[in-house]
Each structure stands twice: as structure tokens, then as C-alpha cells.
Computed example of a mutant assay.
Amino acid sequence: MRLVLCDDHRLFIESLATVLARRGHEVVVTHSPDQALLIGREIRPDVCVIDLRFPDANGLDAVPLLRARLPSCAIVVLSGSDDVADQSAALTAGAAGFLRKDLAISTIIEAIERAGHGRRLAPLTQPRQPVASAEHLRVRRLVEALTDRERQVLRSLVEAEDTVAIAHTLGVAQSTARTHLQNVLLKLGVHTRLQAVALVADAGLADTL
């Protein structure tokens, strides 16, 4: 399937794109609704996945525009919000489904693929629940073992900050920020920033840091 993923949280959306590409999908990542509209007209995707909120735009406003310009494309809203009103507004605007970012990556991928095959997604009627899987517990223990500084670095990674921004956030030199970053990767048992973000996102912990 051809997919357009639109989200300004770069590490999160690029991690999702990597997993989808490994499953054989053609994936294009964009970071604003305007980009999604332009690229959508070029490649005619089967699914467009879009966040609700951007620094200078509203993803919800783009849903009816995408539906009008790409009538054969399923629009899936993927948001950190658990507000029932947001879900209702997205579905009313024409989205095929509403997904939360605290869902397991495997669940998000399955839902995207279902939408691409023309199947409407079931509404999320239950409030978000903590994931009780063994993997969730394992990753939570790893995160809890991080120092306060290291958790702050991990939070910055989820928010797509680079080393310069992390150093500014911590009020330390870039070399010190890099040391904290390496410690985070080592303690989480991963090798790259993308892997770290994917790990905590898949375990449903990205919004709890």
C-alpha cells in the first residue's frame, strides 16, 4: 500500500514509517497538513495518517480537504489525545478511524492496514488503560532505572529534539548531553535514537515520561 504519514513529532513518525516500510508498504513522511495535501495529490495514497495538532496548523481541518481531494484514500487520525470529543470530531469530519499514540505499534499498524483495505475502524470507546504485557513491564523497569537527567533526555528524544536542543534543555554542554544520550541508549539496550523512541512508544510509555 501507499501511505502518507503526517506528524511533527519526527522520531515517533519516522519510527512508525520504518516498521511499515519493512512490511512492504511505500511510505512517505510529512510534517505538516499542507505537505500531506500536496504529496497526497502526487502519489494518490491508500491511507493518510495524520496527527490532530501541529505548531501552526490543525490536522482536523485537513481531514475533509483530504477526503475531498483523495476520495479513494482512507484518512486515519493518530493522536496523543484521549478526549472523546476529539475522536467524535475526527470521525464526523470523515476520518476512517481514530487511533491513540499510546497504543502498541503493532496495534497501530494493524489498524492502518485494515483502513487501507477499506475497513472502517471501531471507535475507541474505552478510556486509555495501562498496557499490562510482559514487554510493557520490562520496558517500564528499564525506564524507571534511568536517572532524572536520563529520563529528561528520553523525553526530549520523543519530542524529536536533536543534541543541540537537548543540551539547551538540560543547560549543559553538548558533550555532556551526548554522554547522557549514550547512557540512555545503553540502559535501554538499543543502538539508535529511533530505536529508543520506538521502544517506549510500542510499550505505551511515550506519554508517561
Results as ranks from 00 to 15, higher is better:
127 P>A: 12
81 S>G: 00
89 A>L: 09
92 T>H: 13
93 A>V: 10
82 D>S: 07
91 L>T: 02
125 T>E: 13
120 R>F: 04
103 L>T: 03
91 L>N: 02
107 T>S: 08
114 R>T: 03
108 I>H: 08
129 Q>M: 12
137 L>D: 05
112 I>V: 07
125 T>S: 15
121 L>E: 01
139 V>C: 01
92 T>I: 10
96 A>T: 12
95 A>E: 06
86 D>N: 15
117 H>V: 08
93 A>R: 11
88 S>I: 15
111 A>Q: 04
89 A>R: 13
114 R>K: 14
83 D>R: 10
91 L>W: 06
115 A>V: 07
97 G>K: 08
118 G>R: 00
104 A>Y: 05
115 A>N: 06
122 A>G: 04
98 F>M: 07
89 A>T: 06
96 A>M: 14
135 E>D: 11
127 P>L: 13
109 I>T: 08
116 G>H: 07
83 D>W: 01
135 E>N: 11
87 Q>W: 07
140 R>K: 09
114 R>P: 02
114 R>W: 03
86 D>V: 08
82 D>A: 10
93 A>H: 14
86 D>S: 14
118 G>C: 01
99 L>P: 02
110 E>T: 13
89 A>G: 08
96 A>E: 14
114 R>C: 04
97 G>W: 11
113 E>C: 05
83 D>K: 03
142 L>W: 01
84 V>H: 05
121 L>T: 05
107 T>K: 15
143 V>M: 02
118 G>Q: 04
134 A>G: 04
91 L>H: 02
100 R>F: 05
83 D>I: 07
98 F>V: 06
102 D>V: 11
125 T>C: 10
100 R>W: 03
105 I>A: 15
127 P>S: 13
96 A>R: 14
115 A>T: 02
111 A>L: 04
90 A>Q: 02
84 V>K: 07
138 R>M: 08
130 P>L: 09
119 R>Y: 10
92 T>F: 14
132 A>H: 12
106 S>T: 10
84 V>M: 06
112 I>Y: 00
139 V>F: 01
130 P>K: 08
115 A>Q: 01
113 E>D: 05
100 R>T: 12
136 H>P: 06
105 I>R: 15
95 A>N: 06
89 A>S: 10
79 S>K: 04
141 R>S: 04
97 G>P: 05
126 Q>G: 13
